[in-house]
Design a protein around this nucleic acid. Structure first.
Length: 419
RNA sequence: GUGAGUGUAGUUCAAUGGCAGAGCACUGGACUGUGGCUCCAGUAGUUGUGGGUUCGAAUCCCAUCACUCACCCCA
């Protein structure tokens, strides 16, 4: 048997209804905040991610689906959305009018990791990118979008954590201070953190190893080392969150896995998905566009994992009332000699906009009734030779267990008949 | 990439070295033109795969594959 690739899955039945619901809400929210949809390619030149995300990150180091196409180009299935959106922004010269661009996207991303709860190799993300403003107003809007969307979806267990990792200058100072602090403890760090010490010092703050945690507890905090501009920027972001009454907690250990972030970083987390606590994450990336373009253009955005979002909504019981999609009307053919007639009735009802199901297996009347019951259909039309002779339809309401004959002429406005 | 756990009917799970079974689901019937409830019957398996130990293996051992969870990391 040929099976789906590890870490991919099929979504069908009531699952698709959950997905459509969530997708609709996201689209609705993008509209509310005036973010326009952008659809970008699923694969790009590998170079885009190498330079954009950063060669030292795990995403680039070991998780990318990379292959060589027939023209000898190195191609990678997108592991995240921001790099592609930024490429599209530049390529389509969206910077030309100097105005703010607000974009949202939704779609599959690919990372070759060992799958586990809430983590897949093909997973779906949505995200927004707010490009062209360096102002804290923009950061706060992006964070509000995430928080308010999740609140409106009904989530109770989510928290917003926020931090500032500074700009080029103050980050450099902070990293120096952090290294100075860590140096005497170097031998006590886990192997991973020893490696990070030179390549990605900030991430040591994020290490879950109890030994490392203990060491970093007393480490200098990022905010202490922010330059005046960055400090003010951060305070203003918090101010605008306060104005919106968005609850958050400042977490000085919060650093992100992608290299392009500056200043604001944030995560929306939950404690209800096992070890996968991040449902959305993002931040400011003022230097990313400059890596592909002649000048820096400030931007801020976030991405949310939709698979995780739906898992979490299930966990919180938010889909409990959701029913399987069902047809409005089931038409039972009492005997096979009325099949032609049943087809005509069915098509007429479909023209009126109803969802209509009929038997396609030449089954007995009894099994047709059983199927109607199993489909949970409310309305059943029973048609046999007797009905045809009398020019009527037998209408049965399955919920009320009531039944009556209706004149075939009433078919033309069937809505009136339904109880 | 690393570690642990689990693989038996469509599905959920029994069977602890001695005849592979049950619930649910499915199909049919009781009710020949009426679903759900009830009762009856039926279909359902190379016990993931390959090897080994044994008189005998779903059960023990080895390998392999798959799934799950966790680590790393991330949405």
């Amino acid at each position: 048997m040929i099976r789906a690739i590890k870490g991919t899955r099929d979504i069908f039945g009531i699952e698709t209804k959950k997905w459509r619901y969530v997708e609709q809400k996201i689209i609705e929210y993008a509209r509310k905040y005036n973010y326009g949809e952008i659809r970008i390619p699923t694969f790009e030149r590998t170079q885009l991610y190498l330079r954009g995300i950063g060669g030292e990150t795990d995403i680039v180091n070991k998780e990318m689906y990379t292959f060589t196409d027939k023209g000898g180009r190195s191609i990678t299935l997108r592991p995240e959305g921001t790099a592609g959106v930024v490429r599209a922004y530049i390529e389509n010269k969206m910077y030309a009018d100097k105005s703010l661009k607000k974009l949202f996207y939704m779609g599959s991303m690919y990372r070759q990791e060992r799958p586990q709860k809430g983590r897949y190799r093909e997973f779906r993300q949505f995200g927004i990118e707010n490009i062209g403003s360096k102002e804290p107003l923009a950061d706060a809007e992006v964070i509000s979008f995430a928080y308010n969307l999740y609140k409106e979806l009904g989530l109770k267990s989510i928290k917003v954590e926020i931090n500032s990792i500074g700009c080029r200058t103050c980050r450099k100072n902070y990293i120096r201070a952090l290294k100075d602090y860590l140096k005497p403890h170097y031998e006590m760090l886990c192997d991973n953190c020893k490696r990070r010490f030179d390549t990605n010092t900030l991430r040591i703050l994020d290490c879950k190893n109890p030994g490392c945690k203990k060491i970093t507890e007393k480490a200098p905090s990022t905010t202490e080392y922010l330059c005046d501009d960055c400090k003010e920027h951060f305070n203003e972001v918090l101010h605008y969150l306060d104005v919106r009454k968005i609850p958050y907690s400042v977490n000085n250990r919060l650093v992100r896995g992608l290299d392009y972030y500056t200043r604001t970083v944030f995560e929306v987390t939950t404690d209800r998905l096992g070890s996968q606590n991040a449902v959305a994450a993002g931040g400011r990336y003022d230097y990313l566009i400059g890596m592909f373009h002649s000048e820096d253009i400030p931007a801020v955005g976030f991405a949310g994992g939709m698979d995780r979002l739906i898992l979490l909504m299930e966990e919180e019981g938010l889909f409990d009332a959701m029913d399987e999609e069902k047809p409005d009307i089931f038409i039972v053919a009492v005997s096979n000699d009325v099949r032609d007639y049943v087809i005509k009735i069915a098509e007429s009802l479909r023209e009126q906009g109803f969802s209509v199901e009929t038997d396609l297996s030449m089954s007995s009347m009894k099994s047709q009734m059983r199927r109607a019951g199993k489909l949970n259909v409310d309305n059943v039309l029973i048609i046999g030779p007797d009905e045809i002779d009398k020019g009527v339809l037998t209408y049965k309401n399955m919920k009320k267990h009531s039944q009556k004959e209706i004149d075939i002429k009433e078919l033309e406005n069937f809505k009136k008949i339904l109880e």
